[in-house]
């Protein structure tokens, strides 16, 4: 697998993502600056977390229209794998790679803590190394993670198996208490229709080493390496 990480002014999780990809792939991913207009020959692009362009206008909106994102979108439309984490999820959603939008957290507070996630499907190149229904511990760190889409879009996402992860309690239950940001139907991550694009608010790259308190993010990177090597 060859991977690239797109870096914007204000990205801040790109080194964590680089470490997680290096651990899984056995070699370093390529770092691509936002002003570049061409993507190297890779089969995965990771859009990392942070505060690209200071979250001006709407979070992710300015980055979504940068030259490199146009290239990412064109390749994703042809089937290349793309994963957007946190601000990366906001960016690829603003770019139109995924439906819906991430709104301000319902609590209005920045949330930074470990949450539980339920794996909704193992039928994807991002989640094949998990069991369906498995409950993971992965950190979140965001102010705008409140997933919103109209009810019709949400029904379609569910009917097409496009929900990747949901926030849940210790027994895998979905309720307001275990929904850290007010996301519709507790959605934490979604695929596009063809499942070559994943966007998620939690940070799997910060759950790959026992020092981080959880290694539950490792299987996500392993899944991508298995599928794309």
């Amino acid at each position: 697998m060859k991977a690239a990480i797109v870096v914007f002014p204000g990205s801040n999780r790109e080194r964590d993502a680089e470490a997680a990809l290096t651990q899984a792939m056995g070699r370093k991913p390529i770092m691509v600056w936002h002003r570049d207009t061409e993507l190297p020959d890779v089969n995965l692009v990771l859009v990392p977390g942070g505060f690209s362009y200071g979250d001006y206008l709407r979070c992710g909106a300015i980055a979504a229209h940068s030259p490199i994102l146009r290239e990412v979108k064109a390749r994703a439309d042809k089937g290349m794998a793309v994963i957007g984490v946190c601000n990366g999820f906001q960016i690829i959603t603003e770019a139109g790679l995924l439906p819906g939008i991430l709104l301000r957290n319902a609590s209005l507070k920045f949330v930074c803590k470990n949450v539980r996630l339920k794996v909704e499907t193992s039928q994807s190149l991002f989640t094949s190394q998990y069991e369906q229904g498995q409950v993971l511990s992965v950190p979140v760190a965001h102010h705008d993670g409140n997933y919103f889409a109209d009810p019709k879009t949400l029904d379609e996402l569910e009917a097409n198996g496009q929900v990747a992860f949901r926030y849940c309690g210790p027994e895998g239950e979905f309720d307001d208490e275990h929904n850290p940001n007010g996301s519709a139907r507790s959605i934490a991550g979604i695929f596009n229709r063809t499942k070559n694009v994943l966007g998620m608010m939690p940070h799997p790259e910060n759950a790959v080493d026992p020092m981080q308190g959880s290694t539950d993010g490792k299987a996500l990177f392993k899944s991508m390496v298995e599928a794309l090597s």
């Binding site: 206008l57 909106a61 229209h65 603003e94 709104l103 919103f148 889409a149 109209d150």
Partner: peptide, 9 residues
């Protein structure tokens, strides 16, 4: 339509 507003919301 392209940038200033997100017509989803």
């Amino acid at each position: 339509a392209k940038l200033l507003a997100n017509t989803v919301i």
